[in-house]
Design a protein around this nucleic acid. Structure first.
Length: 290
DNA sequence: CGGCTTTGACCCGCGC
DNA sequence: GCGCGGGTCAAAGCCG
């Protein structure tokens, strides 16, 4: 590694990664590199299996938590419901994005939850709340969660000076999932998205992760400035809007894999080793060509 | 021109 | 019964 200029390594890394796969298939002298890649693939498979296992365990824990929450709130119900508010009910599951936890909910939220505890326990729709950390200067109420949404209304509510936007799922006509997005009263940089119902179709971003993440192509471009694609998720420190923590497991697995891949490519030791291996092979090949 | 967003109007449930 | 507030509708405007 030290025997090559760093600029050569940097530029050659970008170039060679793209062409290495083709070259190794053509050149029998690079079998060692192929073996190395195969070994890395095997390790990737192992990691993928571990991720699957981890997600399964998370699923079990989440189910247990939901059951516990439901039981707790059912025990606390002591009076009949006073006001209909289907947006937040006993099935409410919360998630955190960007380090904002459920404990950051507002006083109004707490009052709302108290009201909810008086409501009937029969739940017709699954409701979940997701917190999106975003720039406080962003005035749009658009969050990228992988689904396509059609905005059908916006309202300024009494308990929050920020407008609340109403969305319907536009992925499938038969999908009746709704979403409400409103900024948190306490922290204007936090978007609170309330999902009602469950999607009866796969996530569009799993089919085509590069297009139509949110709305029409034009609209998607317009909203592009708000949030980076979900691949930028950082499990330890998330500053931008990334993905919902409301778990869709295939999506989470994909994110985790991408996160690990990103970590690997960001790891100087890994890239240095890879660059050294690739450039070394190319250097060898150049010497033999001459 | 089609699809999406915006926004004022309307509907409905609840409290007084 | 009336007023308030949240949720939805739909016409108009915008944009690619």
């Amino acid at each position: 590694m030290d025997q090559y200029p760093s600029s050569l390594v940097d530029t050659s890394l970008d170039l060679t990664i793209g062409v290495t796969r083709m070259r190794v298939e053509e050149d029998s002298t690079t079998t060692a590199l192929v073996d190395e890649l195969n070994r890395m693939n095997a390790e990737n498979k192992k990691l993928s299996e571990m991720l699957t296992l981890m997600c399964d365990k998370y699923n079990v824990l989440r189910e247990q938590l939901m059951e516990y929450v439901n039981n707790t709130e059912r025990d606390q119900v002591s009076s009949p419901k006073k006001r209909k508010s289907p947006a937040r009910d006993d099935a409410t599951s919360s998630a955190v994005v960007g380090g904002v936890s459920e404990s950051s909910s507002t006083d109004q939220d707490d009052q709302y939850l108290c009201k909810k505890q008086r409501e009937e326990t029969v739940v017709k729709e699954k409701v979940s709340r997701v917190y999106y950390k975003t720039e406080a200067s962003d005035t749009t109420l658009v969050v990228k969660d992988g689904y396509q949404w059609r905005k059908y209304g916006q309202k300024v509510t009494r308990d929050n000076p920020s407008p609340r936007a109403y969305f319907k799922c536009a992925c499938a006509p038969s999908c009746s999932v709704k979403k409400k997005v409103q900024r948190s009263v306490e922290d204007q940089s936090v978007l609170v998205a309330t999902y009602e119902g469950e999607h009866n179709h796969p996530m569009p971003s799993q089919i085509d992760s590069n297009s139509g993440l949110n709305r029409s192509p034009g609209a998607a471009n317009r909203s592009r400035s708000l949030a980076e694609p979900v691949t930028t998720i950082d499990l330890t420190e998330t500053k931008k809007v990334t993905s919902p923590s409301r778990v869709d497991f295939p999506e989470v697995q994909k994110l985790l894999v991408e996160q690990m891949a990103s970590s690997l490519t960001k790891d100087p030791n890994f890239t240095a080793a890879l660059a050294a291996a690739v450039t070394g092979k190319l250097y060898q090949q150049n010497q033999t060509d001459k």
